[in-house]
Amino acid sequence: MATTISKNVQLAKALPARLLTFLARYPPAAILPDGATPETHKTAYQEETPNPFLPTKHPVTGRWHNPKYSLRRQAELVKMAREHHVEELLPFTPKGTEERLRKRVELGLRVKGTGVGQKVKGHKHERQLQAKMEKRREAMLKMPELIRQYRSMPRWKFTKTFKFPK
């Protein structure tokens, strides 16, 4: 109890002011005083927007409101928190490390096809290259025999009997 509180105080002294302000306005359940349930122990800011990092739908008008913190400011907070190893104290944000990693896995490098289980489509000639080279290789393997046949008979006979590949 007391140790956790003193630890929190220690932590608070080490954090930058911006992060402290944020945590004071939106305290996570982890740093609430003992006996306080997150449901009852809410700051006015939290009453208004449980997660200031996400857009909210107004309950009456049904209009969507932008997040209280812009994506840029979210990213700055996350960066600060990460540097002080307290990222888990922030509410869910699309700028969080885990979410970013998840997105990276899902989408890859934003280059189509580099994600998990995806393939780079490539140009048509690139996709057909293997088959083309295989066809060419086979044709070249048959070439000496073909030329031998060609030379063994009159040309008119050869061209007549030969079946054009394709």
Partner: peptide
């Protein structure tokens, strides 16, 4: 005349190969 055919150089495979007239 009847269709042409000859053995000529193919620069892609860099060898002399058989060339036949296209159908």
């Amino acid at each position: 005349r009847m269709p042409m055919s000859m053995i000529k150089y193919d620069p892609i495979v860099r060898r002399r190969v058989l060339f036949l007239e296209q159908k």
